[in-house]
Amino acid sequence: MTTTAFRPVLLLTGGYAVLSVLTLVAIVLLRNDHALVTDAVWVRATLVVASSLLTFAFARSAARGSRKGLLRLRIVAAAMLVAIVVIVALPGLFPVWLRIEQAVCGLLLLGVTVLVNGRRVRAR
């Protein structure tokens, strides 16, 4: 798949990475409010930033034609999507604001998952 044809995936994964980094910045700024920023929020946000950066790297690799990059992108996007669905669905585990942010991340990853598993990508 060419970079041009892969542009929507790059935009979605880039948006996921930017949102994840901005969320971590917000957590740092709000760190003294223990109702908004719990230990679980710190752990989750750190893992999400790492996975979002990997997801974007895999998308770039796949856009350059790497089959391994595409496989990694498919696996990471699907796995993170499942984890996000669980986090959004479980009440009380995380503050509402983080669950909303994760829902937005989930929508971005849903788009990635649909695109990278679609006929257009499989045909290439």
Rank of each mutant, 00 (worst) to 15 (best):
Tyr16Arg: 14
Trp42Leu: 15
Leu54Met: 13
Ala62Gly: 10
Val41Phe: 03
Ser20Gln: 07
Pro8Asp: 13
Ala35Leu: 10
Leu19Ser: 12
Asn32Tyr: 01
Ser20Cys: 08
Thr2Lys: 12
Ala63His: 02
Val25Lys: 09
Gly92Phe: 07
Leu93Ile: 05
Ala40Val: 06
Ser61Asp: 00
Lys68Thr: 10
Arg120Thr: 12
Val43Arg: 10
Leu19Met: 13
Leu70Gly: 01
Trp97Val: 12
Val88Tyr: 06
Phe56Ser: 12
Gly14Ser: 05
Gly15Pro: 04
Ser52Glu: 04
Val112Gln: 09
Ala50Leu: 06
Glu101Gln: 07
Arg60Leu: 11
Val48Trp: 02
Val85Ser: 08
Ala40Asp: 13
Thr55Asp: 09
Val96Trp: 01
Ala62Ser: 11
Gly14Ala: 04
Leu19Val: 11
Thr3Ala: 07
Thr13Arg: 15
Ala123Trp: 02
Thr46Gln: 07
Glu101Val: 14
Val96Ser: 00
Val96His: 03
Val121Lys: 04
Arg44Ala: 15
Arg120Pro: 02
Asp39Asn: 13
Val48Asn: 13
Ala5Arg: 15
Arg122Glu: 08
Arg7Thr: 11
Val112Phe: 00
Ala5Pro: 06
Ser61Ala: 05
Met80Gln: 11
Arg119Lys: 15
Thr3Phe: 05
Val76Thr: 09
Gly14His: 01
Phe94Ser: 14
Gln102Pro: 04
Gly14Lys: 03
Gly14Trp: 00
Gly65Pro: 13
Pro91Trp: 04
Met1Glu: 08
Leu110His: 11
Leu36Ala: 09
Gly14Met: 00
Val114Leu: 14
Thr4Pro: 09
Arg120Phe: 01
